[in-house]
Each structure stands twice: as structure tokens, then as C-alpha cells.
Amino acid sequence: MSEGGAFSRPGARFDRILGAVVWLAAGGIAAVLIWITGDTLQRGLSEVDIAFLTTEPTDAGRRGGIVSVVVSTLMILAVTLTAAVPLALGTAVFLADVSARWSAAAAVVRWSLDVLAAVPSIVFGLFGNALFCVVLGLGYSILSGGLTLACMVLPVMIRTAEQALRSVPAELRMNAAALGLRRTARLWHIEFPAAVPGMAAGLVLGIGRALAETAALIFTAGYATRMPTSVMDSGRALSVHVYELAMNVPMGDRRAAATATILMILVLCITSAASSLLHRRRIFRRSEA
């Protein structure tokens, strides 16, 4: 569609006008994106060095580094993945494979996941605070924060894993069934291996979401900057550290930008990993077809 020559002459001027408008819109978006990332990197990179990554924060984060914050973030992520991955895989298998005979149930599951994906993250924070911190008595802890995030990332993980399973060619499935494989064996030996790249993309997207999250963590994982010794300790995630430094620590914005730089680099690596995994799946599918 991109060759203007395929179209008749009278629209040529209007074509140029609309072309200018849409190029401007796209260019504007690209420019702002470069502005945001460029500015944050420029402010942050000069503060980042080995010491910043290996020492604990002091003076409310104005001095020292972020190592305890990084460790807390990784521990929260580990809790999130431990809780969310098995659930996500099971649900995806249900939606992709079993649900043909349970279409009403599948519709309910899908709707509830859609709604869950749209729930504001601060609302997850309040929920996590009420359930994990208060009712289950876990207090402000890495465990509470990780479990709250697990609820939050479930929908995106399930959706991507389901799509991955669905895109496994039907012939593979049928051949396996014709050879007399049981459903579990078929899932384990045929469908899972074939769907691995897509499911990995879902995992990576979930990690990206969890890393970027702030609002769900301030009332669940808390904001202690000490080095955590167990999942029952309160721990501050990178994103919470950025928020605290920018909003509640006078003169904290240089360190906030430095932490945001680290956070952004992590998230960008993860996002591009996810899209390259999804891309690989597409190639895989084409060669199978």
C-alpha cells in the first residue's frame, strides 16, 4: 500500500497533507521517547559506577549505592515467579487445550483475567496489604510484595503462554494422539517443547511488568533499605527507591535518576528479549507450515 503511484492524481495534494500529518505524529512520538530516555540516561549515567552498584545506600539514599535495593528487587521477583509461573502454565493449558469441552468455564476464566489485567496496580497494593500483610500476618515483607505482584502478572503470563500453546501446529498434536500418547505425555513431550519460546516470552513480559511496578509494592513490600536477610524482611524495590528519592528526599533527584537508569536498562533489555522471543516463534511457525 505504500506506493503512492497506485492511487489516482486528484488526491495527490491531500495525500501529501495527510502524509505530513502522520509523519509528524510518529516523529513526535519518537522524539519524546528519545527525550525521556536520553534525559534520564544523561542525568543518571554520570552517577553510576561500580561503587554505586556494590554498596548499600546511606543518608536516605543520597549517598552510597543500591546493592540492597537490587537484592530486594531480585528476591521479590523470585517470590513472584515461584508463585505465578506454575499457576500461569496450568491455566494456559486449560485455556488452550482442555477448555474446548468447557467453553462456558473458559469464558469466565478469560473474562476474569481481562478484568484482573485492568485492575489499577495501587488497588492490588491495597488488596495485598489487607490479605498478605494483615490477615495472613506476613507484615510488610518481600513475601507479601512478591505474592501481590504474582496476582498482578498472572494475566499477561497466561495470555502469552496460551497463545504459544495454541500456535503449536495442530498436526503435531493429532499425530501424537494418533500414536497413542496420553494427554499428559503429549503436553509434556510435544506441546511444551514446541511452545517454549512463546512461553518464555510470557515469562519475560511478566518479569518486565513486575520490575516496573511501584504502586503495588509501597504498601506490601515496604521501603526498608537494609540488606534483606530473608523473605520476611521488608525490602525496597528499585522502582520504589526512585519514587522515594524523587518525592521524599530533598536533593535526592540525582540518585533517583541513577537508579531510574539502572531500572530502565533492565526493563529495556527484558522488553527486547521478549519481542525477539515472540519473533522467533513466528519464524518457527512459518517453517512448520
Binding site: I29, A30, L33, W35, I36, T37, D39, T40, R43, G208, L211, A212, E213, T214, A215, S239, V242, Y243, A246, M247, D253, A256, A257, A260, L263, M264, V267, L268, I270, T271, S272, S275
Partner: peptide, 19 residues
């Protein structure tokens, strides 16, 4: 580019907004 933009954490947008 749009996919990258969708992945930027909201605190980074907030920090850019603030600074």
C-alpha cells in the same frame, strides 16, 4: 519503539515529568 515505550516503568515517566 512503541513496544519499548509501553515497557518504560511509570516512575521513570514520573521522574522525567518532575525533573
Amino acid at each position: 519503539l512503541l513496544e519499548l515505550m509501553a515497557g518504560i516503568p511509570s516512575v521513570v515517566f514520573g521522574l522525567w515529568g518532575l525533573l
